[in-house]
């Protein structure tokens, strides 16, 4: 519906501008806070314009000891931990779901649908529900404070399996038959035909899963006791509770900004494929 009424246009724009402000203001305050020194951040009112300490805060947060007087891991290390964890979770989930969807759609084996529903049922068992047994298993395997421990328990994914199953079902049977006549075995078909055809879906899923992995809080908090292995999301919260000090907002806000950065980069880099993956239906 296209209407040309100036009054409506003004209203629409006002609503949109309001929305942008609501979303952008916290980020702006984060940025402003990250560019002042420690002292200024303890005084009221809080500043609304950037100060001159941005690069100083930046290097201190990223490479230095972070919070003054605390022997805390530099933030680059936490960024790395988060990155490894988010990436392993996203990549692991995609690989496993692709394989299980491949098996369920293209192979006839006994209890095929049984297995499918079993995978589906795990939707009802997110980490929070099975946290005690999972912790026990991970601890017994000696995976506490390791990248394996951070990522493996979060890798199994019913949603992704289900999604890839749907994608594979839209690929015409003739594609498989044609490949069979061409002499492609199952793995070759998987690699040469299925993966390229699900490329956009893989990208879309990667974005979603990367952010899911990046935002994990409870599980990393539980299994990392060594500060070298903490993820950035966990450590922001810990910085707020720094013992017997007022919170150093400039450093905390800088950390928060750095924590926002990688998901944003992933979204920007994959935006085109992401949208294609969610909207494209033509195979």
């Amino acid at each position: 519906m296209v209407e040309n009424r100036p009054f409506l246009t003004v209203i629409t724009h006002a609503v949109l501008v309001l929305g942008v402000i609501m979303i952008a203001l916290p980020i702006w305050i984060t940025f402003v806070a990250a560019s002042h020194d420690e002292l200024r951040m303890t005084q009221a009112p809080i500043p609304m314009l950037p100060g001159g300490h941005f690069w100083e805060n930046f290097t201190r947060t990223l490479f230095g000891s972070g919070l003054a007087g605390n022997e805390i891991t530099p933030v680059w290390r936490m960024l790395l931990n988060s990155l490894v964890m988010a990436f392993s979770i996203a990549a692991g989930k995609i690989v496993i779901s692709l394989l299980s969807a491949f098996a369920i759609v293209y192979f006839k084996f006994p209890f095929r649908m049984g297995f499918f529903w079993m995978i589906f049922l795990t939707l009802m068992l997110p980490v929070e529900v099975r946290i005690l047994p999972t912790f026990e298993v991970v601890a017994n395997l000696g995976l506490l404070n390791s990248y394996w421990g951070l990522s493996v328990p979060l890798i199994a994914s019913a949603t992704a399996t289900f999604m890839f199953r749907q994608v594979f079902l839209t690929i015409p049977d003739e594609m498989l038959e044609s490949a069979r006549i061409d002499g492609a075995g199952p793995l070759r078909f998987f690699w040469d035909i299925l993966i390229p055809l699900s490329r956009t879906n893989i990208a879309a899923l990667f974005v979603i899963l990367f952010i899911y992995g990046w935002n994990q809080y409870l599980w990393p908090l539980l299994i990392t006791t060594d500060s070298d292995m903490t993820t950035i999301v966990v450590s922001i919260k810990q910085m707020l509770e720094a013992a017997e000090q007022s919170p150093q907002w400039n450093i905390i806000m800088m950390t928060a900004m750095l924590a926002m950065l990688p998901p944003i980069l992933v979204v920007i880099a994959m935006q085109k494929l992401f949208v294609q993956g969610l909207t494209e239906t033509d195979k």
């Binding site: 003739e174 594609m175 038959e177 044609s178 040469d192 035909i193 055809l197 490329r199």
Partner: peptide, 11 residues
Amino acid sequence: MVFQNYALYPH
């Protein structure tokens, strides 16, 4: 074999 919907590999 030539299929009704051609079954060309789209990618």
